[in-house]
Every structure is written in C-alpha cells, then in structure tokens.
Write a protein that binds this DNA or RNA. Sequence first.
DNA 1: TTGTAAGCGTTATCAC
DNA 2: GTGATAACGCTTACAA
Lengths: 331, 331
Amino acid sequence: MVKRTTLADIGNLVGVDPSVVSRVIREDPALSIRPETRKKIREAIEKLGYHPNALAQNLRQSRSGAFGMFVPDFANPIFAEIIRGADRASAAAGAVLVTGETAHGGYLELARSGRLDGLLLVSDDVGGSEMDELDSIGVPWLLVNRQEYGRRCLIIDDEKGARAAVDGMLALGHTSIGHISGPAYSDTASRRALGFRNALTEAGLPSDAAVSAEYSAASGSVAAPLLLASFPDVTAIVVSNVMGAIGALAGLHKAGVRVPQDVSIVAIHDFDLAEQLVPRLSTVRMPLAQLGSRGIEVLAGAPLKNPMILGPIELILRDSSTSITSEPPAP
Amino acid sequence: MVKRTTLADIGNLVGVDPSVVSRVIREDPALSIRPETRKKIREAIEKLGYHPNALAQNLRQSRSGAFGMFVPDFANPIFAEIIRGADRASAAAGAVLVTGETAHGGYLELARSGRLDGLLLVSDDVGGSEMDELDSIGVPWLLVNRQEYGRRCLIIDDEKGARAAVDGMLALGHTSIGHISGPAYSDTASRRALGFRNALTEAGLPSDAAVSAEYSAASGSVAAPLLLASFPDVTAIVVSNVMGAIGALAGLHKAGVRVPQDVSIVAIHDFDLAEQLVPRLSTVRMPLAQLGSRGIEVLAGAPLKNPMILGPIELILRDSSTSITSEPPAP
DNA sequence: TTGTAAGCGTTATCAC
DNA sequence: GTGATAACGCTTACAA
C-alpha cells in the first residue's frame, strides 16, 4: 500500500503552505486567495488524487463522524427498515453508521472511547444502568421506538396505529375484535393495547378479548388459537407485531381456523413479505424509516421538541381480513 | 460535556510521564517498572475513569478500527445473517462494523478517506470500475457470496447446496424435478443451477425443467406457475433463493396448486420465518453467518487459502415437501 | 494574499 | 525504571 497523499504534498507541489490548501478545500469564506493560486491547488489535488485523511480530521476536530445504531436482531424486518432510514440520513449528514446487535453490549465501549458522535438504541433490553452510563459519558443518545421516563426518545404513534387497525375491522363490520398484544414490559405494546381498548370503547364495544405474546412468531402461533379458545365470538384479531402475526397465521392454520373466513387478521407494522404470505397479510404501515432518519438528524443537532414522529399511518387491507357481511347472516 | 480524561491527566496525578502510563495500559513487555508505580497508575486510571481516545489512537496507528460491510438490502434475511456473523467477528476483533446499503455507493468515499481497515461487499451491483478503484485505494476488500475472476472473494458451496436439495427430493421419490433459478448475471445462481443439473444427471434424470427468476418474492410467484405450465410432470421444485420460494408458495396458492400435495418445494437458504410459513418451508441451511465472520477474519489478516467456506450444509425438510409415494400409485 | 505555529491524544524511539 | 521528544495529518487563530 503506497503512502497516501497529504496536504503537505499538495502544498509542496504548488509551492504553498498546507494550511492554505486546507482552507481552499474547505472553502473557507475568510480566505482571500488569488484565483490562479486556487486553480493551481485544485489541479494539484486532482493530479495527486488527494483525499483528506478522516482519521486526522477526527482527532483534530474531536468528532468521529460516526453514529451508532444498535438493534436486538438484524433479521427482524422492522429493525431493518429503521436501520435503512438511519443509513440514509447518516450518509446525507456525511457520517457513517456503525451498527450492531445490542446483545453484545459493545456500544458502551464505543461511546467511552469517543468513536461515536451519537447513538441510537432500539431495544427493550437496554437497562437503566447502561443509560446512566451513557449519560455520564456525555455522548448524545436516544431511545428509538421506546419511551422511558426521563430519557430522550423517539417513538411513533403506536396508539394511533392500533386504532387504525381496530377502525379498519370495525369498518368491515366486525364487532367482536380481539388483540394479541406484545409483552408487558414493552411500552410500544402497552401503547398499542391502549389504542386497541380506546378505539373499541369509543365504539361502545368490549375490549377484553386480549392475550399477550412475545415478539416472536412462535409465540404468536400459540397465542392466536388460545385467544379464540377463550373468546369464541371473536371474528377479527389485531396482532401487535408482525412476527407475532406471521406466527398467528401459522398457528391458526394448524388449528384448522381459516383466515379470513373464520377470523380476520391485521398486524401492526407493514413489511415486504406481508404481500407474499398466504393469505396476504393486512397491516398498518407506520413510519419506521423516519424513526431511523429522524433519530440521526436529532443526534446531528436537530431540535427534539416532540418525541413523536408524525409520519403517515396507513391501513393496508390485504387478504387476511374480510368483511363480516360475507358470513351468513344471523337467522 | 466535560473534558475527557487523558493520559496526561493520569500522568500528572501519579507524577509520571504520560508515555509510561501508555506503556502500562498496553502492557508493553519491554517496560520495566516498579510494581508500586504500576499499581498507582492503575488506581489513577480507575479513579479518573480513563478510557483511551480512539480517535488519537487511530491517527497515531493509521488504522481506523472499523470494517465496512455493504449489502443490497437490509431487509433480506439472508444478508441479515451475513451481517450478524460479521458483527460478531468484528466485536471479537475489537473493531466496529460500519454497514450500509450498496445503492448509495458510500463505501468508496469511506475507503478513500481511510475510515475503513477493510471492506466486505455483498452485492451483484458492484461494478468492475468500483473494484479497480478499491484496489487502487489499497484497502483490503473482499467480495462476499460472489465469485469474480481475479478478485479476492468468499463463497459458500452453492453447488453442494443445490445438490442437497435435489438429493432430498430424489430420496422422497421424486423423479421429475424442476428448478427456479436466480438471474443469469448472478454467479451464485449459476453455481446452484450447475449443482441442480449435475445431481439430476448423475441420477440419470433430465434437468431441463428450469426457469429463471429475479431475487424477489414477486418474481418467484410468477415463475412457479409458469414452470408448472411448461413442465406439467414436475412434482418437486428447487427454488434458488428464499425470497423466490416465498413468492412461489404464494403464486402456487393463487394458481390453485397445493403444496406439497401437488408439488413439493424446497429452497436454498434457511431463515427464521421458514418455520412459520404456511406450509412450513423446506430449506437447505447454508453457513451464511460464517460468510460474514470469516470475511472479517480475512480482512483482519487471516490467510485466504480457499475462497470456499467449508461449513455444514443441511437439508431441513418441513411441510412444503413430501414423499412422492403419498400420491396415488399409477394404475 | 499567504505563512506560522500550536495543538488534538497517542505511541514509538531514544536517551538518561 | 522512567522521561523527553517527535510524529501521525489536519485545522485554525494569529501574524506578516
């Protein structure tokens, strides 16, 4: 590997001080320079193929030009979409995105060593002591998709998302609607459960048909038949998360329950494969990518007035839900 | 944000030169030091909560401590698993993993500015000129899951994977086996197609029942019914990639073809959701995580004698494939 | 209109 | 056994 070209090399070639070259590159407005000198410098840069050494810039400016983003699981399409948003925004901000899974806890060491200008944490398993530690380190950081008292965070309108799902089922004529919620420790789950209950209460309908499941397909596949066994009248189920919904489809199929003929299913969060499942899964599309991109923007200095992302929330009806009127009318 | 503790701070506190502190921290074997001095230094480090400034280390040592990993699509579970492997290996190597999507081409600038100690590219849309540029920059880099003449790369045994799928179908009694291959420009696709043909040829069976599809569910959903229309005798289909297989299930369902009763399906590459689809999808599990982890190890200096990863390849039979003998016997 | 110089915090090579 | 010094490549206030 050949030695890299430095500012000094350019300076030597042109016969000018490196600092001048630096100022030309950075288009320092306080610099007045003869056009021909500037031109010569530009040409030399071109000729030698100069690119600034980011490591030196980093040290000099005490900033790493990197943002961190840690998620529980790369394979979850929800996190993938958040990451994508963060990736785009980082690139736009001229920074790189360092990603990792929260499990190995590497983000603390990264923050301590100054390798991150900011950090996004998308995870329920980041504990209070880790958060305190981050605060004491002094890196800007944000909880993403999780609200916690006294911490800076960014969330989407989960309550509204759940309402959209319920309203969609109501519009299809369902009057007995069930809920497979996320785990109790998850605040997104409780906000969705709240939206579910409120929407039904406002419609003058009961909202007690609910069971809770983990954020996993396996858990959803158990929960769905269980819900129907406990509440046999239920004709539509709002599933709090996509993995659970996929599991629910599988679990119901195995139990001999037909979707959507016997029960309609709608999930919170949309994702690519929803379109390809059998049956195609109805979802509520939420602004996940914005969760990532806005997170980066806040880390980069944008004001955080409101933790709630105000993006579009959209019910996407596919084959897993159907109108109740397609059932034989009561005698 | 308070000023960070530096080596000099420790030195001042203990009454010793910063360089000595550095040598203690790095456990320099060439350092002889009084045990009590060492102890005092250790205590001061503890007391002031010192952590080395990675930015300064980076500049001094001309290494960024970061590896890059760029994929076409974060949402594809295949790439997610490769990323996970790379993430683990990076953490183990004391480096961070910078990820991004190949589309915005940011990796070139990262490489040029010295922000990466090495780069893994998992993508069919990285062109020859980009590769040449990377070579001229001098960063170690590797194509992952793609073989290209004259380039350093890392692949898995796709041919063997396809063979495993075919052999599995043969063992179930199928004698007319079709293939939904990946796109022609993809070398993984051609290696899988080769495995498919060889396995059938060696079994004395024809291997002409093949159509090609893009790496997408939508494409697979079109290709599967098409394949059956062209080759009505086919009783089992080997799908070259998971997305295509998911699409195939959907496409066949829509066409009224029952899986596995009318046709068996097996996909190359396993992933979480395979277990939760309806029907549960048979797959060939390939060592994807190792593709990522070994890639990082090679970047970190491990010798690259053989581009082929020699991990386990395992056929996982689930509900989407069944024995041909379950069909009514011919009269 | 340009040059000088002082750092950013570390580490490697000497010197004492 | 420990200290001094230079250097990594860049930026920026100040001097000329």
